[in-house]
Amino acid sequence: MGNLDMLSLTAYALQVLLIIMAVSIVVHKNNGTIIILITTFSLITASLYVINKAPDVAIAEVAIGSAIIPLIYVISISRQREFIVLDKAMDDFIIADNAFTGVGYVLLKRFTDFYHLELNICNDVRLCSLGAGRDQLLCEQTNVDLIVSKDDERNVYVLKGKASSILTYKLEAMARDYDNIEVVKFKDRDFGD
């Protein structure tokens, strides 16, 4: 009987700990810290499952909650700090003198640092070979946020972004000071066309 009392005492203690963890997950602001908290939360629930006579459920919870759930949270949170730019111009706009010192790079870096984003510049060969008419389709179908291209006649760099994205408007406000940079917004179509 003494053993059983000890077990129910442990159960109560773990339940109170679970409530504390749940409250801290709800009130915490930083999503990165919450991942650690949710892993702890899931391990506490697993031990409560064992106390509630369900070892099968506990094995499943430990296997899933300790590795796969934190992984997908980490990846999706890190992806939500990312600003993907497709560089079609391929000249000294981004890379000047073999380093990231071009005028466009400085602007984009200032922009992403200001909004705590991570700049990701890619120049995929197959994507860059697509014509300018398909830029809107490209923007909608892939995760690319911004397309950089060059208008040779006016000698102006054109940055194309989605009109639905709030970041395009913020970039437009920031790029107003530059003479040779122009921000173009695609018209909205229905999401998922």
Binding site: I84, F100, L119, N120, I121, C122, N123, D124, R126, L127, Q141, T142, N143
Partner: peptide, 11 residues
């Protein structure tokens, strides 16, 4: 679904 290969220059 991605038809493209994303390559990050900095990465």
């Amino acid at each position: 679904k991605h038809e493209i290969e994303e390559k990050n220059a900095q990465f």
